[in-house]
Simulated scan of single mutants.
Amino acid sequence: MKTVSDSKRAFYASYPRPINSVYRRVIEELLVEMHLLSVNADFKLDPIYYLGIVTSFERLMQGYQPESDKEQIFNALCTSTDSDPETYKSQAGALLSIAKDKSTDELVDWLSNPTAENDSSHIVEPIKAIATNDNFKYSRPFAIGIYTLLEECDHELVQDQEKRNQVLDTIAENFGISGEKMKKDLELYRSNLEKMGELLKVIEDVLEASRKKRAKRAEEKQAKEAKEADEVKEATAE
């Protein structure tokens, strides 16, 4: 069986460049999570999981530089765990588009009995199968996928803990999974997003201070050179 070390080697072979230390932990945690699920006999890929992985990556990798490398890193994450990055993106996008025009109640109803919309049967069938799968393997990315769908429907609702938890309990009951586990995972996810936001603010403040310092040094150098030039002119005139 493929090991975590095998997946890590595959990832760094696919993306051999150094990863900024702030984000390395994010990547390695995602990689380990994706690997452990990929080798679990009960785990089945589904669009909600895909959306959770894509969203986790996008949110927790905000501010990564160079920005152009993010797609290569995501692709390496998927291929190193024997998955297709385009499938992740396309199914996540298709599921999110279904949620876009629904109210929260409509989304909860749809998740409990999904119906195909605009040739989306490839999205619907795996979600239908979850409720009837006695061995369904719940995962943290699945919870994040649910959270992302709710956020798409009603951003204010996900900020209200009581209302959010009521909806999560209903969805969890419909899927036959633990509402407490899902809520706990999402609290951790929200906390991680908050910490990343704070960290990015610190980084931006440091960069701004550095830019100001460089600008000040440049101004001082320019002023010094102008003064020296004036002194030379005065000496020549004498």
Rank of each mutant, 00 (worst) to 15 (best):
Asp119Ala: 14
Val4Asp: 01
Lys181Met: 09
Glu71Arg: 15
Ile48Lys: 12
Tyr64Leu: 13
Glu152Val: 08
Thr3Leu: 01
Leu37Gln: 05
Ala94Ile: 11
Glu106Ser: 12
Asp185Ala: 08
Ala143Asp: 00
Arg24Phe: 05
Ala237Gln: 02
Phe142Trp: 11
Met34Trp: 03
Asp101Ser: 10
Leu60Lys: 11
Leu168Ile: 15
Leu95Arg: 09
Lys163Thr: 07
Lys195Arg: 08
Ser68His: 07
Cys78Ala: 15
Leu31Arg: 02
Val4Asn: 00
Ile171Arg: 12
Ile144Gln: 09
Gly176Asp: 10
Glu33Pro: 01
Lys216Trp: 04
Ser103Trp: 07
Ile27Leu: 09
Trp110Glu: 11
Ala143Phe: 02
Val39Gly: 02
Leu95Gln: 03
Lys2Asp: 02
Ala223Asn: 06
Asp6Asn: 11
Asp69Trp: 01
Tyr88Gly: 06
Lys224Glu: 11
Arg17Val: 05
Val158Arg: 10
Ile98Gln: 03
Ala218Val: 14
Glu71Ser: 15
Phe11Ile: 09
Arg25Trp: 00
Ser68Cys: 03
Ser7Tyr: 01
Val26Ser: 02
Lys213Tyr: 12
Arg140Lys: 14
His155Ile: 13
Ala172Cys: 13
Phe43Tyr: 13
Ala131His: 13
Met182Val: 14
Met61Lys: 06
Val158Ile: 15
Leu150Ala: 08
Asp185Glu: 07
Ala99Gly: 05
Leu96His: 00
Tyr49Ser: 08
Ala10Phe: 01
Lys201Asn: 04
Glu208Asn: 14
Thr104Phe: 07
His122Trp: 14
Val32Tyr: 00
Arg140Thr: 14
Thr132Ser: 15
Thr87Trp: 02
Lys8Phe: 08
Pro18Met: 08
Glu151Leu: 14
Leu149Trp: 13
Asp134Ser: 11
Phe11Trp: 06
Ala172Glu: 11
Asp46Thr: 08
Asn75Glu: 14
Thr170Ser: 15
Gln161His: 03
Lys89Val: 07
Glu204Met: 08
Gln65Met: 12
Phe136Lys: 10
Leu77His: 06
Glu219Ile: 12
Tyr64Arg: 10
Ala99Lys: 03
Tyr138Leu: 06
Glu28Asp: 06
Asp119Val: 12
Ile171Lys: 04
Ile48Val: 15
Pro16Gly: 06
Asp46Leu: 09
Ala131Lys: 15
Glu208Phe: 13
Ser38Arg: 13
Gly179Gln: 05
